[in-house]
């Protein structure tokens, strides 16, 4: 704005603090709740300050989980989430880099056809083709496995497009110089193209990791064995059970489920913003 009046600035800060408070509220409440003892949440009205049961709640959830739900210990589910998220992220990055490389740097028959084949996956989110996809995975014997949790999700038109866009901006002379320098296709890919893409890869890693970690419907469909429950879908089994819900313990699990991706965003904010704004452009 042109002029900065002190009153205007004060109002701005007040407005923003209200906004931040609203954004923080649910998580603040969750953290407070997760530190309370079993009886304290039932008295109507939640305490505003942390209680003294944090350690025991978190330890209980981490080690053994909730007896009233089918979900295993949160430690186990966090581990499953981590494996799934990393497998999806690494898989997506790998196959997207390779296919973008093929589409940008080679001329070959059916190139346009393959491009559209990949493009079309944008239009087929798993939510709209649940049952047939479930059947395919079941027929392939991939239910209750990490392969089943991750492989069907690694095809990504978005990442392929981002890398394609980026490769198109790499100066033509990089390839030409590399070829004069005697580098073959894969050598060029490894020695020149990958190092040049490193910021884009990192930015996309952040976005894909969050995407992978937050998967919900997919693990819900293909895991019937609690051994493979991920934390995000496991929490739902804790509150949908009939009868008494120990909210203080559920909130401990919620905090644990939220922490890893939130930390990724906070510590890699610059890459996160880059990844987000560029994948959607």
């Amino acid at each position: 704005m042109v002029e900065h009046r002190p009153v205007g600035n004060l109002l701005t800060h007040v407005l923003l603090m209200l906004g931040v408070a609203m954004v923080l509220l649910p998580v603040y409440v969750a953290i407070i709740a997760s530190t309370q003892g079993p009886g304290e949440l039932m008295r109507g009205g939640l305490p505003l300050l942390p209680g003294g049961h944090a350690l025991e709640n978190y330890r209980l959830m981490w080690q053994s989980g909730l007896s009233s739900s089918s979900a295993p210990a949160a430690g186990k589910m966090l581990w499953n989430s981590l494996i799934m998220a990393l497998a999806i992220t690494v898989g997506k990055l790998a196959i997207s880099l390779l296919s973008a490389f093929a589409i940008v740097y080679f001329r070959f028959r059916f190139r346009l056809f393959f491009f559209w084949l990949i493009f079309i996956t944008l239009m087929l989110p798993v939510e709209v083709r649940i049952i047939p996809t479930f059947r395919v995975v079941a027929d392939l014997g991939m239910l209750n496995s990490f392969a089943g949790l991750s492989i069907p999700l690694i095809a990504s038109a978005t990442a392929t497009f981002l890398f394609r866009q980026f490769f198109m901006t790499v100066p033509e002379e990089m390839l030409e110089a590399a070829r004069v320098d005697g580098a073959g296709p894969m050598k060029f890919f490894r020695d020149i193209l990958l190092p040049l893409s490193i910021t884009n890869i990192a930015a996309l890693f952040v976005i894909m990791f969050i995407y992978g970690w937050n998967q919900y419907l997919w693990p819900l469909l293909i895991t019937t064995d609690p051994e493979y429950y991920t934390i995000v879908m496991g929490i739902q089994t804790m509150i949908n059970s009939e009868g008494y819900v120990p909210w203080h313990l559920v909130m401990a699990a919620v905090v644990m489920a939220t922490l890893p991706p939130v930390l990724v965003v906070l510590f890699m904010q610059r890459l996160f913003v880059k990844g987000l704004t560029e994948t959607e452009k």
């Binding site: 100066p171 002379e173 990089m174 030409e176 110089a177 590399a178 004069v180 020149i192 190092p195």
Partner: peptide
């Protein structure tokens, strides 16, 4: 042969 490019085409990394 060796070539010198207009924009130099040095490998930035």
């Amino acid at each position: 042969i060796a070539m010198v490019f207009q924009n130099y085409a040095l490998y930035p990394h």
